[in-house]
């Protein structure tokens, strides 16, 4: 039976339709790149208002998150990611999508056990491991350079 399982899994791998990896990669580059270009334009706008590049980065992130949330609400963002893949998921707009989509989805189960409890179902792992990685990197930096 185990050999039959192994053989069948091998047959499945052989016959599996191929994913369009090259096309996906190019689309991810284009879509991710476009989002970054939009972000850059927003940053330039704030710098034009007299902010330094560093000062402008926070309001830029806020505007991008707002746009990501808006596009999710309008039902457009899932289509962007469908074509753009990681190019749409990785920018901060994708994080907004990961927060807003469960909020929309689970409102029928109420504000506490629905939206409240399920809000981080997608973004939760990103936060947990993002913060863990930041702490590890920070600790390494502190050990090497002595700068916290």
């Amino acid at each position: 039976m185990d050999s039959e399982k192994a053989r069948y899994q091998q047959l499945t791998q052989e016959m599996m339709p191929r994913r369009p990896v090259l096309r996906n990669a190019i689309m991810a580059f284009v879509v991710g790149g476009l989002i970054c270009v939009v972000g850059q334009c927003i940053q330039w706008f704030f710098m034009h208002q007299g902010m330094s590049a560093k000062e402008a980065s926070s309001p830029t992130a806020v505007v991008l998150i707002g746009l990501g949330a808006l596009f999710t609400g309008l039902g457009w963002y899932d289509r962007i990611v469908k074509h753009g893949g990681m190019g749409g998921t990785l920018p901060i707009t994708g994080f907004a999508n990961a927060m807003v989509s469960p909020a929309m989805e689970f409102r029928t189960e109420g504000l506490v056990m629905g939206v409240g409890a399920r809000l981080f179902t997608v973004a939760g792992p990103v936060l947990v491991y993002g913060m863990t990685a930041a702490m590890v990197v920070g600790a390494v930096r502190w050990l090497i350079t002595g700068v916290a």
Partner: peptide, 9 residues
């Protein structure tokens, strides 16, 4: 996943 979450099938 939630309906409006973007991901590739």
């Amino acid at each position: 996943f939630p309906l409006e979450l973007g991901y590739q099938r």
